[in-house]
Structure formats: C-alpha cells, structure tokens
Design a protein around this nucleic acid. Structure first.
Lengths: 129, 129
DNA sequence: CGCCAAAATGAAAACGGTTGTCAAAGTCTC
DNA sequence: GAGACTTTGACAACCGTTTTCATTTTGGCG
C-alpha cells in the first residue's frame, strides 16, 4: 500500500530542488505513472508528516516539497533565480530562537528560517534586476 | 485618494497581532465602513509594498498583515495559540544569514525568520483548548 | 462651474492550489 | 474464493486571492 507513496518519494529524490505537488504529479504522469493528483497530495503529506521530506511555502502560497538529504534539522538557502538549494545547518540560529522565545516566556519553540539570495551562477553582471 | 487605504491602515494599527485580509475586511464592515473586499486586498498590498505593514504567510497559506511598530528590520515571535506577537530584533540572525549566504557564493541575501511558540498565558498545563 | 480624463472602487466571476467525497479497485486474511 | 478493510483517483467543493469591468470619485483645466 505504500507503492505509490514510494513512487512519489522516488520522484522527489530524483529532483534537485523543491518541487510543487502539481509538478511532481506532472512529472510522474510524463514518466507513465498511473497516479492521481489526490494521491500525490496525500503521499506528500504523509511523507512530510513522517519527516521524510521538507515542506516550504513559496511566496505565492504554494507548498513545495523536497526530499531531505539529512534527517537532522536544517534550513535552506535558496537561489531566487534558479531555485538551486543548499541545505545549511545553523546551530547559532537554533540557539537564538530558543533564547528569544524563552526570554519572552514562550515554550515549545519552533522556527522557520529561509534564506534567499542570488547564487553565483545567476549573479553574473548582466543587466538584470 | 488614500482615504480607504488609511482606513485599512488604521484598522490594522488598532489590532495587536496579525490579521488576515478577510479579517480586516470583516472588522471594517462591522464598524460600518463601506468598503469592498477587493479594496482591502489592494490597500493591504499597497501598504506592504510601501513597507508600512508586515506580511506573513501562515502555515495554511493565508497572508496575514500587521502594522509594524518600527520601520527597522525585525522578526516575529508568535504564540501559536493566542496569536500574540512580539517583535524581536536578531542581529545575530542577520549576520548568520549573510554569512551562510556569502559562504555559498550567494548575493543579495534576504531571509525569512519566524519563531513560533506557546506563550506563558497559553502554556498552563491543564486548561488548554 | 462644468467637463473630461485618470485613478479608485467594488460586486461578481475567474483562478489556482488544495482538500473532501465517494464509489471502484486493490490487498490481506482466513 | 469470500469478506472486510484500505487505498486510489476522478471530480467537485473550497477558500483565499486576483482579475474583470462597469461605475463612481477625484483632480485639473478651460
């Protein structure tokens, strides 16, 4: 019963960056997979629940998923142009979040950190904004 | 011609935490304001563009807005239960983001940091929602 | 003051991603 | 093979947001 879920996971692992659910669905169909959009969504959610993949919200409100290279907590550095993603660990940030939270009496602290930038390949001195 | 936009801004300032567009709209109507949903959205966007308000995406993908107390760059510590928000400055995080980015050859680095937790008032062990 | 043009407004429809529904198909156990 | 339970997927419903477009308001100018 996890065959389709595995297929989704595999597709995700075959990609380098974040993919949207629709994106994953489209690719799977292209490769001949017989799967429905609904199932892709469900698989992605299950995967995310199990910590198998990362979930991120784009600025447009779309959920994007990515198979993590590591199980450990980490953040992402995403190129805003080409979408290239680098996983980064940030012990300093973890501590900072904890500290800031407890300083204000907050408990069960979680945090979201995303760093966006323009990667070297995309920052060639062309006339782009 | 910014009267309605000001009204939206005022409503936002009269609130303590983040409000969704629909929320703001509902409140304005309650108070008798003659304004359309569309206009609220447009005003909110204009305000956000001008840096007058903060925009955040909730986990559900909804955009929430808040009148900033300060113009300076800052982050938010949000209670996941009551929505109480504290503005926090994090020089350490700014530096960390810059460092991580440049370490990987990224430029024009921006970052999103949100810290969620349960505030002291909401963390009473028994009487929870 | 009256008139035209540009900007703003708002009701409703369109949109896009996501989630729910529900019947059909698959799986497992006995 | 039968029966019970789970998973699947086509499709519709949802929901927040954006677009459309006709109408209203505002501002400038003769």
């Amino acid at each position: 019963m996890t065959t389709r879920r595995d297929a989704v996971h595999d597709t995700l692992r075959g990609s380098s960056g974040f993919r949207s659910a629709q994106d994953v669905y489209a690719e799977m169909r292209l490769h001949g997979a017989k799967i429905g959009l609904t199932t892709v969504y469900r698989a992605l959610q299950a995967l995310a629940d199990g910590g198998k993949v990362d979930v991120l919200r784009t600025d447009e409100g779309e959920s994007v998923y990515r198979a993590c290279a590591t199980d450990a907590h980490h953040h992402h550095l995403v190129c805003r142009k080409c979408g290239r993603t680098v996983e980064v660990a940030g012990p300093a940030v973890e501590r900072w979040a904890e500290m800031v939270g407890s300083e204000h009496g907050f408990t069960e602290i979680t945090h979201t950190v995303e760093v966006f930038g323009t990667c070297s390949s995309c920052s060639t001195p062309s006339r782009t904004v």
